[in-house]
């Protein structure tokens, strides 16, 4: 069984369903990375990853700072 979740417009397959946004961050190997996360268009503040529950049809955007002018 794998769990499908939409991240950055694409379907990601995870070994199991992440209970929280914190679990999702760990499953995607993004722990400790400078990122910001939107869940269904709403920002999830950094301090609330572990208390924000992941729903079955949630869509996530995960962004980072890159070179730009």
């Amino acid at each position: 069984m794998t769990f499908e979740i939409t991240v950055n417009g694409a379907v990601e397959r995870l070994p199991a369903r992440p209970a929280t946004v914190g679990d999702l961050v760990r499953a995607l190997n993004l722990t400790g990375k400078r990122i910001a996360i939107e869940r269904n268009g709403e920002i999830v503040p950094k301090g609330r990853y572990d208390e924000t529950v992941v729903g079955p049809n949630d869509r996530f955007e995960i962004v980072a700072a890159v070179g730009g002018g």
């Binding site: 417009g9 990601e12 993004l30 995960i62 700072a65 890159v66 070179g67 002018g69």
Partner: peptide, 20 residues
């Protein structure tokens, strides 16, 4: 210094250096 905000690369090496 200006920076842009873009979707993060999933599946990239977790230890790869970042702009920050």
């Amino acid at each position: 210094v200006t920076v842009a905000i873009r979707r993060t690369n999933l599946g990239q090496d977790a230890n790869a250096p970042s702009l920050l």
